[in-house]
Computed example of a mutant assay.
Amino acid sequence: MLKQISSGTRAFCAIISLLCIAAIVLQLSMSLPGYADRERTLGGFLLEYFSYFTIQSNLLVALCTGCVALSGFNGKWFTRAGVLSAVAVCITIVSLVYNLVLRSTFHPVGWARVADELLHVVNPVLYLIFWAAISPKAGITYRGTFSWLIYPLFYIIYILVRGALTTKYPYFFLDAGKFGYPQVALNIAVLVVVFWLFCMLYAFIAQRITGRKRQS
């Protein structure tokens, strides 16, 4: 269903999209010298860089908000209520996992710190504001949220297959070479449960917001 949006909303969405793109490019430029020192190929570096869930999630945020800024909520894939909500869950997990589990293991400085904060704090917060205040939520059901798990599950499968072939894992808790598959399977089970709980939470919030709008 086509939903018209104001110029202010378009501008806000455009800002989020541009910040995500800027953060991805900035982090890319900060990471490239280190990979070049290891005599890695450019293709191998880019494949590894874009294998991070953080980068992929910020890219999805950029695509969603960019499409809304350009065309409004026109019913196409990246402007659908379910897709926008699924991306909200992904970027929430990115922020929570990094800030609660991984932040103490990284100490970026300078522009690397700027990119780090944009990717893990600023962009997630701005997108959640967009989702809560602007994104359409009509038609979101608890049953429908199971489709939101498809992308994270495919991502995990991809990481495990890629890790088995290259021995490289983007996140330590998925490193089957270091911890073994039984422990990694347990870690994955915990992650899936966390994802599912957030899917349920966001569906609950969406239904509450939709209900209040109908009553007003």
Rank of each mutant, 00 (worst) to 15 (best):
Y49W: 12
Y49L: 10
Y49K: 11
Y49N: 08
Y49C: 11
F50A: 13
F50T: 15
F50P: 11
F50D: 14
S51E: 13
S51H: 13
S51C: 14
S51K: 13
S51A: 15
Y52K: 12
F53E: 10
F53S: 12
F53K: 12
T54C: 08
T54M: 07
T54E: 09
T54A: 10
I55Y: 04
I55H: 02
I55R: 00
I55F: 04
I55D: 00
Q56Y: 08
Q56P: 02
Q56E: 14
Q56H: 06
Q56S: 13
S57K: 11
S57N: 12
S57C: 15
N58I: 03
N58F: 05
N58H: 08
N58P: 05
L59R: 07
L59P: 01
L60M: 14
L60R: 02
L60D: 04
L60F: 11
V61F: 08
V61T: 05
V61N: 03
V61L: 10
V61Q: 05
A62V: 09
A62H: 08
A62E: 02
A62P: 01
L63I: 15
L63T: 08
L63E: 00
L63D: 03
L63S: 07
C64L: 00
T65S: 09
T65R: 01
T65Y: 07
T65P: 07
G66Q: 03
G66N: 09
C67D: 13
V68T: 10
V68Y: 08
V68E: 02
V68D: 06
L70W: 15
L70V: 13
L70G: 09
L70K: 14
S71K: 13
S71G: 14
G72E: 12
G72N: 12
G72S: 14
F73M: 15
F73W: 13
F73A: 12
N74F: 04
N74V: 06
N74S: 09
N74L: 03
G75F: 09
G75T: 05
G75A: 05
G75E: 06
K76W: 10
K76Q: 14
W77F: 15
F78S: 03
F78M: 00
F78T: 05
T79A: 00
R80I: 02
R80C: 04
A81W: 00
A81R: 06
G82P: 00
G82K: 10
G82W: 02
G82N: 14
V83M: 01
V83H: 00
L84F: 05
L84K: 01
L84S: 03
L84N: 02
L84V: 00
S85H: 02
S85G: 13
S85C: 11
A86E: 11
A86Y: 09
V87W: 07
V87N: 09
V87D: 04
V87R: 02
A88C: 14
A88F: 04
A88L: 10
C90P: 12
C90Y: 14
C90K: 09
C90W: 15
I91C: 01
I91S: 03
I91R: 02
I91A: 00
I91F: 04
I91E: 05
I91D: 06
T92H: 01
T92L: 07
T92R: 00
